[in-house]
Each structure stands twice: as structure tokens, then as C-alpha cells.
Computed example of a mutant assay.
Amino acid sequence: MAGSPTPKLNANFPSLDAFQHLGPFAVALSGGADSTAMLIACATHWPGRVHAVHVHHGLQAAADGFVQHCEALCQRFDVPLVVQRVNAAHAVGESPENAARQARYTAFANALQQNWGGHIKDMVLAQHADDQVETLLLALSRGAGLPGLASMPALADRGGVTYHRPWLDVPGQALRDALQAAGEVWVDDPTNTDTRFTRNRIRIDVLPVLARAFPAFRQTFARSARHAAQAQTLLTELAEEDLQTVGQPPAIRALQLLSEARQSNVLRHWLTLEGTQASAAQMQALLRQVKACTTRGHQIDIKVGHGFVRRDGAVLRCYNL
């Protein structure tokens, strides 16, 4: 039975050939349809090269059932599995989704560092075209800039791990259809139908309407996300050049010689390097203060993210809390 899904899954997802150059790698295995399809496709395509990491969030009673599914699946396909247990409870003012996401990435990095001799640096994520559309719509709903509109990259480095998303152009239904055709099962997360979460409302209420109005929306939205990512790459390159000019920490007089758009761009880049971010309102307040800073006694003290930007003589400094 383990061999039956091989031709169907691999035929449906030729994009996995991009992994040909990888050495041993890990699959993020939640137990849902998407990651189950990814684990089977990878394990049948590259037997002996694939490992798996399952994150047990400890947030619901069904979580133990997810572990059992992942253990049985990995045993069938002879894939080493690590189960990482985390505390994904969110802090006051933090969204549950963001807390769980941050906990997952920390767990992934820890799993790769602590297991398999620390030689695995690549992890495959099964996020697909519907996930990408949801991410883009979430960014639009929040008034995000280019980094948010770029949505999820197909390739990204984070915490010493390279994350691969080969199925961002594959509809989620195609993965479920492939699994059903192969006679495979998966587990459904009960929280996926809870419309208190914005992403679930988009999936349940918005995507079906988009499909009726714009049948090719997955492809066109993904193209817009790629355009945003390309534009953000150019802005980052410009910010790096401007940062060399204004200095690090940035000199106020040098900043004032730039246009407001370039000031905002380089300051956002600098703050990212300092480990924080500014909201649109905070950045506007900072730009106003930079423009008004024409006397020696003018003070700048602006809240940004988890810290402050303050004037220190001729330069700006970031102080994180």
C-alpha cells in the first residue's frame, strides 16, 4: 500500500523536482491533507532522504490524534519523525495565530538543531495556492505594505533554516484529490472551521465567492504577490545603499537630504536590522520629527514596535525594551 501513491502524487506535483539538489531534508508534518501529501510525495520520490517534524501545540484535545496519525504515516514510509511539544499560548494583545506560528518556527529550528546530527538545514512546508491567497488578503485587510503583499516566499532563510514552499501555485483541492485517489487519509484540525479566526473566515466565506467571480484568482493573486516581492527586493537594495550613506546609526542631517519616501524606506530597513518595526503612524511621526530637527536642542523620542527611536546628538538610536 505504501507504494501505491507514488505515481499519482509525483505526477501531479512535478515542482518537487526542485529538491533534487538537496541533501537530507525535513518535512513539516501537521497531519493535515497538505502536509500528509507532501510527506508521501517526498518519501516516495526520495526514500531515505526525508525526515519529518511534527509540532504538538498543546492547544486542543485532538492534538494527540494528530501525533498518532503522523507516527503511523512515518512508520509506513520509513521516515524518521521528531515530535516537538511547545507552549503556543498567546500573550495579552497577541493574536493566537501569530503565537502559534512563532512557536512552530522555533520548534522547527530546535528540532533540526537537536536531532539528526544537526546536519539538516532544509525544511519543506506544504503551504499551497489557497494559503497564499489567504495571506495576501490578510495583508490587504490590514493595510500592509510591500513586505506583507509579497505574502509567503517560495524560499526563505530563518534562524539558520532554509524553508521551501514548492506548492504555492497548487490549489489545496488538488492535494486532497490526489490523496483520495491514492486511498490516503489525513486528519482535519477542528479549529479550521472556527470563523472567529480571520484566516478561516477568508477560507470559508471569501474564497468561494472569489472562485465564482474570478476563476483564475489563485494564479493572478500569486502573480501580484510575486510582483510585490520583486519590488520589495529593489527597495531593500536601495535601503542598503542609502544606509551606507546615512550611516548606522543614521545621521539626521544625512537623512534630511533624502526624499521622504527614501527616508521611510531606509529607516524601516534600519529598524528591521535593529530587531523592531514601526507602524505607519509611528513612521509618519518619526519622519515629521526628523524634518523638524533643525536645532541642537530639538529632541526626538518616538515609540516604534517594542522600543523607541531617540536622538543622540547628530544621530538616531534605537532602544528596544
Rank of each mutant, 00 (worst) to 15 (best):
V79A: 07
T245C: 14
Q244F: 02
A239E: 06
L136Y: 15
A72D: 04
I120M: 07
T294P: 06
A231D: 12
M38P: 01
A225Y: 06
D157R: 14
D64Y: 04
H306M: 10
Q127Y: 07
T106W: 11
C70T: 08
L146D: 10
N320M: 14
W270I: 02
V79M: 02
T191Q: 08
V206S: 07
R76V: 11
Q84I: 01
H57G: 08
Q20H: 13
R176K: 09
F66S: 08
V82K: 08
A89I: 03
Q114P: 03
F214H: 15
A150L: 10
C74Q: 05
T276H: 02
A231G: 09
T276A: 09
Q232N: 13
Q132S: 06
N200T: 04
L273D: 03
A61R: 09
A111R: 09
P208Y: 04
D157Q: 15
G48Y: 06
E134L: 07
D64F: 00
G247K: 10
R296C: 03
L29T: 02
G313R: 06
D194C: 02
V170G: 02
Q127R: 05
H164V: 03
K291L: 03
D130T: 01
Q284F: 06
L207C: 05
P250H: 11
A52D: 10
V86H: 07
V309Y: 01
R176N: 03
R199A: 02
A285V: 06
V266F: 10
A62S: 15
Q299V: 11
D169N: 13
V246R: 00
E240F: 10
G305T: 05
A261Y: 07
D242E: 14
L243D: 05
D122V: 03
L29V: 04
W46K: 02
L273A: 12
A254V: 09
T233H: 08
V133T: 11
Q230E: 14
Q277L: 12
V133L: 06
S259I: 09
R311N: 01
T198I: 05
P96G: 06
W167C: 12
L136A: 15
H298W: 00
E94V: 03
Q127D: 13
D131A: 03
N110T: 14
A126K: 11
A254K: 15
Q75H: 10
D205S: 05
C74F: 01
T198R: 01
L16N: 00
V92A: 15
G3S: 14
N110M: 13
Q84H: 05
L168M: 10
A33T: 01
G65A: 04
F214S: 14
R317L: 09
R268C: 14
F19M: 14
T191V: 10
L210D: 09
A99D: 01
Y319I: 14
T135C: 00
N200L: 06
S30R: 08
A231T: 13
